[in-house]
């Protein structure tokens, strides 16, 4: 397995979707290749960072809806 092949299947690997035989080849490559271990680490960190990116309280607090928008929606419903 080359680095290119490993990186191509990284999402499947992380999500546990690789067949067992391919998983073994994957892990053997990882054991021997520091570059791919670094890539895997950074890739996982990327996914976590994306998942947490909107947890910022200033962004994700049960955001309020502008009053004008509430009124616009209710008006639109009445005239619908």
């Amino acid at each position: 397995m080359t680095c290119q092949q490993l990186i191509e299947f990284l999402t499947e690997y992380i999500e546990g979707q690789l067949p067992l035989s391919q998983r073994a080849a994957f892990e053997l490559h990882l054991a021997l290749c520091g570059q791919c271990r670094a890539y895997l680490h950074n890739f996982r960190t990327t996914i976590e960072a994306a998942q947490n990116a909107f947890d910022d309280p200033t962004v994700a607090t049960p955001a309020s809806i502008p009053e004008e928008l509430v009124q616009a929606i209710l008006r639109a419903r009445r005239s619908n």
Binding site: T2, C3, Q4, Q5, Q35, C36, A38, Y39, H41, N42
Partner: peptide, 17 residues
């Protein structure tokens, strides 16, 4: 997307974050 050499290694070295 990452670039690869003909032998399947990555073009650019990867530094672990």
């Amino acid at each position: 997307l990452p670039a690869f050499k003909a032998d399947g290694h990555q073009e650019a070295p990867v530094a672990r974050w």
